[in-house]
């Protein structure tokens, strides 16, 4: 450093730089708000917030919500449906080592009529897609869907195949996505915990159709 000529080095004081001219121009807020309004999303959000506040004020409804949600989140019965590789990891999740039964979910019902949760475990081929949609429609409300593995999320390694649906969310609504190929059972368990959180926040009225 000694060899550098000190006269030629201009020392810059960072605090004295006028940063105002470098600032990017921010769009006006009402622009974003008006965009939201035009999509109708804002109204829905405001309505949901209103209703949640009202519900919290109403002691009885809040209590009912809590009890029912507690019941739902502790007894999620999945439907026995495996599509491909991930189904084997689904089995190993319900076996001794990982034991989904701890969360009260070991009751794998074979019939969709008695189940709450659909694991889309594996590649959804285009031939299978209508059947999967039908399976989803046969389940009674309230129902949840967890898309497991990169195939179910986006097509995964088979994304450029002519026979594979790229993402199950094109045919049925998905609540939780679990990436991996296939995801480890720990990731499945984490998705179950996330689903429990989701159900805990949910108002009963939403799934009973009272808000419509």
């Amino acid at each position: 450093m000694d060899s550098v000529d000190k006269d030629k080095v201009t020392v810059i004081d960072a605090t004295k730089i006028d940063t105002s001219k470098y600032k990017r121009e921010v769009k006006r807020e009402d622009d974003a708000a008006s965009q939201l309004k035009s999509t109708g999303l804002l109204n829905t959000l405001v309505y949901a917030k209103d209703r949640a506040e009202k519900r919290d004020q109403n002691v009885i409804l809040a209590l009912v919500d809590q009890v029912v949600n507690w019941g739902r989140l502790c007894s999620i019965w999945p439907v026995t449906s495996g599509l491909a590789c991930c189904a084997i990891e689904m089995m190993s999740m319900s076996m001794g080592h990982y034991d989904i039964a701890r969360f009260g979910s070991e009751v794998f019902r074979a019939t969709p009529r008695q189940s709450d949760l659909l694991f889309v475990a594996g590649t959804v081929s285009k031939r299978m897609a209508p059947r999967l949609k039908r399976l989803y429609e046969q389940m009674p409300e309230p129902k949840w869907v967890i898309a497991v593995g990169s195939c179910a999320i986006s097509g995964g390694p088979f994304v450029d195949s002519y026979a594979v649906l790229t993402g199950v969310d094109k045919i049925i609504p998905v609540d939780i996505y679990v990436p991996g190929c296939p995801p480890r059972p720990e990731a499945w368990l984490y998705s179950m915990i996330q689903l429990r959180k989701l159900i805990k926040e949910e108002g009963v009225g939403i799934t009973w159709g009272l808000d419509k």
Partner: peptide
């Protein structure tokens, strides 16, 4: 058959 047909042979070509 064919509910798990993923077209692996076709993918293998590329």
């Amino acid at each position: 058959l064919g509910q798990l047909h993923r077209g692996i042979e076709k993918i293998a070509e590329s």
